[in-house]
Design a protein around this nucleic acid. Structure first.
Length: 863
RNA sequence: GCGAGGGUGGCUGAGCCUGGCCAAAAGCGGCGGGCUUAAGACCCGCUCCCGUAGGGGUCCGAGGGUUCGAAUCCCUUCCCUCGCACCA
């Protein structure tokens, strides 16, 4: 098992051939190649099984498309900046640059071994100054278009990684990378204005037919659009408090306001009131079932009634949701009810349920009571009227997504091309001075750019006075938000990418990755494309047409990870076995438990295929084709059609299943008789070629003995020679007939038969079936009218059968074809039961037997 | 709580969109046979129940409905997974 028949030499040989023939490189003047891309990896170590699965899927598809004669662009690059690399290199006491190179060399080597057909001429690395120069350039364009800004906002902060994080990068209150609980800090940070595209990003999901529903759903949730109303309350302190509500009809039920502990007004009040300060700093904001709160002494004015409402600070009010303040309607909201009850606040019922309801609080729709001039109005109607009538109420759409915080207080990233000047403020570094290069890493300065004096100290591009460089670097998700564009023209020196070519080559036709990136990378990618489109750099707003997200690779039910100690290295098995196993064991979308499946079957298939292709043709014959030869020839055709369909829909699991089945037909054929050379050669050739996307080395090796040229050259996909409509039906007929024969054979006690007779129904039954299928009313009568004069009782019996089973009737093969299919397949039965098998026409058989035959259901006699 | 995706024969897991060819693929496991001194690997067959000629019964979480006909469509209900959530 540990040995593979594909030696390192063989691999190297074919790699060499492919490379010298430039088979995977795409010319810049290519017209719209099929763009297939696997999400590029972080450079934090060698490949792991998840990578192997990801890239094997993408590569199998790419190779398939190439075999179909298409030009395929499949590039690969490295997401080289970022914390994992920085942390690893610091831990290993080396320069991140050096560490990155090491990783890349190792990963590239593994990828080449695995036979991935990348256009290495387009390889890129985000930490390359020639790459991040353009990341900086694009940052500037966004800035100029008002889509990037520096602002003091409350952001998520990971104390472990010592950097700010984007909201997307916080998972259940913890840093997505290191799992440390994040804090919130008020910081001056850089943001991309993602929220400007919130609507479009959300609505655009509906058009992504070829994206997994789960990914779209997660993006929808994340964007979190809610339609509602903002109500402004004035206070006796002269402030205004905005609250967001979807239920303006509850306005008259408002008996208090509650602010989040982190609301600006809460914090301001805390400055002058020690009790509030104490409360705000100690209250637990994470415990949802605690309804801690504190009265502030501030009074707000109800905009409709003028009533005085107490203002509270409530632990249950979430700061970064809506406006961070709520209007409390205890009688009609669960949380308000709990809070008001705990703090002894008045409950005011203003909505009467439509139907009897004992629900307290009542949160449904109904009719307003005690609602001033709106009393008696239905809730839905009241919302509209109140919105129209009240100046204090304005329609508002609230989103969950926030702007994308792109500042990272770390060394190993793209420097933000900005200089801070005391007089000029923040000034962009001129294009001609890009890239702003990272200073050399030194252990003393560690992981902060701010410690590099020679980097920080500069002059203002505008006034020439002393100034300081921005020391934050960009979130690596910015690097990866546009990498697919750089692949289009990786050597372009005047612009980040060739815009004309981009408009031709985009979008990415097939993107393959893990779904853990659903609301990070994939959302940023979609945002960035839109921003660039509005800037006028590309015209493809939706960058990915079809997305495949594969499941996890597990070992014994748990995720493979170094800490679990259950990692299986890609090198542990041969390339062909690994690729075949990965694709053939489960569908790409489902989780894949390595230990649950047997690798040996994959190994055996390749071994057997190899034998077939190298020795199978030693003993063949030519000349007239026999029935068995025709049967195999047809089976080859149908396998080609089926396999092609499966590849088209990326169902590699079904591909492997079908090819196994074709293999088994070919090997039975060989066992049964001396195969016909043409038929056998074609079958083996088709099998070798159709397996090539999965086992590229093996197939290339075998094809070199069987056919012309190189498979990697493309356009070598086998063509079926026959039309397929009757084939599937024929295969089903053969299968059902074989099953019937086995049934009968078993039920008579499994005695060895000498002879098996298969009798095909007489022609008139086929005609009668046609009549029955076309009959508009009484089937029995119609059939009797048209066929009854010929065969007497027999017709009546069959007509009755047709009438009784009228709903089960379907098209069957024509008589001649049915007979042909059965004759061609009779060898299978002969081989299985070791008996003479004949296929007869009804007219040649005794009436008692012939009578039992129907179209699609031949009569059988075991003797 | 909201939303999405699911619940299929001992297990894993296709089929469901486009109802009939579905007792329902495939793999695993199990049983029998072959190969073999033996084991492993490999090959063949069987693997819901009944049946001595291709038949019958029951079946795709549960209940109901539509239909000549439902694993597939509709409704109700229970359970699982995931995402979001003190959602105002």
């Amino acid at each position: 098992m540990s040995k593979t028949h594909i030696s390192a030499n063989t691999r190297a040989y074919w790699q060499q051939i492919w490379e010298t023939n430039n088979l995977f490189t795409v010319d810049d003047d290519a017209a719209d190649p099929t763009y297939i891309l696997g999400m590029f990896p972080f450079t934090s170590g060698d490949l792991h099984m998840g990578h192997v699965r990801n890239y094997t899927i993408a590569d199998a598809y790419a190779r398939y498309r190439r075999l179909q004669g298409e030009e395929v662009l499949q590039p690969m690059g490295w997401d080289a900046f970022g914390l994992p690399t920085e942390n690893e290199s610091v831990a290993n006491d080396v320069d991140p640059e050096f560490w990155t190179e090491q990783c890349i060399d190792q990963m590239r080597d593994s990828m080449e071994k695995l036979g991935f057909s990348y256009d290495w001429d387009r390889e890129l690395r985000t930490s390359d100054p020639e790459y991040y120069r353009w990341t900086q350039w694009l940052f500037k364009r966004l800035y100029e278009h008002g889509l990037a800004e520096r602002a003091q906002r409350r952001v998520k902060w990971c104390p472990e990684d010592e950097t700010a994080l984007a909201d997307e990068q916080v998972d259940d209150g913890a840093c997505w990378r290191c799992g440390t609980e994040v804090e919130t800090r008020e910081l001056d940070q850089w943001f991309f204005e993602l929220t400007a595209y919130a609507d479009e990003l959300l609505d655009g999901l509906d058009d992504l037919q070829q994206w997994p529903e789960s990914v779209k759903q997660r993006q929808r949730n994340w964007i979190g659009r809610r339609e509602g109303v903002t109500v402004t309350f004035e206070t006796d302190t002269g402030d205004e408090i905005d609250v967001f509500t979807k239920r303006l009809d509850r306005l008259y039920g408002t008996t208090y306001l509650a602010l989040a502990p982190d609301h600006p007004m809460s914090r301001r009040l805390a400055e002058s009131d020690p009790d509030i300060a104490e409360f705000v700093s100690t209250v637990d904001r994470t415990e949802g079932d605690e309804f801690d709160g504190m009265r502030t002494g501030v009074t707000a004015i109800h905009p409709a009634t003028g009533a005085e409402l107490p203002v509270y600070i409530g632990a249950y009010v979430v700061d970064d949701l809506g406006t961070g303040a709520v209007m409390g309607t205890p009688a009609h909201d669960e949380n308000d009810h709990a809070f008001a009850t705990a703090h002894d606040i008045e409950h005011r019922v203003v909505i009467e349920p439509e139907e009897d309801s004992t629900e307290i609080p009542y949160t449904g729709e109904g009719e307003l009571i005690e609602g001033g001039e709106y009393t008696g109005v239905a809730t839905a109607e009241a919302r509209e009227q109140l919105l129209a009538d009240l100046d204090a109420a304005t329609q508002h759409t609230d989103y969950r997504v926030r702007d994308w915080c792109i500042s990272r207080q770390r060394y190993w990233g793209t420097p933000i091309p900005v200089v801070h000047c005391e007089d000029c403020g923040e000034v962009l570094v001129p294009d001609e001075e890009l890239p702003v290069e990272l200073p050399d890493f030194t252990p003393e300065t560690g992981t902060s750019l701010a410690a590099h004096d020679e980097f920080v100290e500069t002059t203002c591009p505008e006034c020439g006075r002393d100034a300081r460089r921005e020391t934050d670097t960009l979130d690596t998700f910015v690097d990866s938000a546009w990498y697919y564009l750089r692949f289009i023209s990786p050597d372009e020196g005047d612009q980040p990418f060739d815009t004309e070519r981009a408009s031709e080559w985009l979008p990415i036709d097939q993107y393959v990755g893990g779904d853990e990136n659903a609301v990070m990378h994939l959302l940023y990618l979609r945002f960035f494309a839109r921003a660039l489109a509005d800037i006028g750099l590309i015209d493809t707003r939706e960058p990915v047409r079809e997305l495949l997200t594969h499941g996890m690779v597990l070992n014994d039910g748990t995720k493979m990870s170094k800490s679990e100690g259950n990692v299986i290295s890609p090198a542990e098995y041969g390339v062909a076995t690994t690729r075949l196993f990965i694709l053939g064991a489960v569908t790409p979308e489902s989780d894949f438990d390595w230990s649950n499946h047997r690798r040996t079957a994959s190994y055996t298939l390749q071994k057997e295929l190899q034998r077939l292709a190298t020795e199978g043709l030693d003993d063949v014959q030519s000349g007239e084709r026999r029935q068995v030869d025709e049967h195999v020839a047809e089976r080859v055709d149908s396998a080609i059609r089926t396999t092609t369909d499966h590849y088209e829909s990326l169902d590699f699991y079904d591909v492997v299943r079908e090819l196994r089945s074709l293999y088994s037909t070919l090997s039975e054929y060989e066992e049964y008789t001396t195969p016909h050379e043409n038929v056998f050669r074609r079958g083996i050739g088709a099998l070798v070629r159709m397996l090539a996307p999965i086992t590229p080395y093996l197939s290339e090796e075998l094809w070199s003995r069987l056919g012309d040229g190189l498979l990697a050259e493309g356009d070598r996909w086998p063509e079926p020679r026959r039309e397929g409509e009757t084939d599937e039906r024929g295969q089903r007929l053969v299968e059902s007939t074989r099953e019937d024969i086995r049934d009968i054979h078993d039920s008579v006690g499994g005695i060895d038969p000498d002879r098996i007779r298969i009798v095909v129904a007489p022609a008139w039954k086929y005609a009668a079936l046609e009549t029955a299928l076309d009959a508009e009313r009484n089937i029995y009568d119609t059939v009797m009218d048209e066929h009854g004069d010929r065969q007497g009782d027999e017709v009546a019996d069959y007509a009755r059968h047709l009438a009784e089973n009228r709903y089960d009737l379907g098209e069957e093969l024509p008589q001649a074809r049915e007979q042909q299919v059965l004759e061609r397949a009779s060898w299978l039965i002969e081989k299985e039961l070791d008996a003479e098998v004949t296929v007869e026409a009804a007219s040649d058989a005794e009436p008692a037997l012939a009578e039992r035959a129907r179209p699609g259901k031949p009569a059988i006699s075991i003797e």
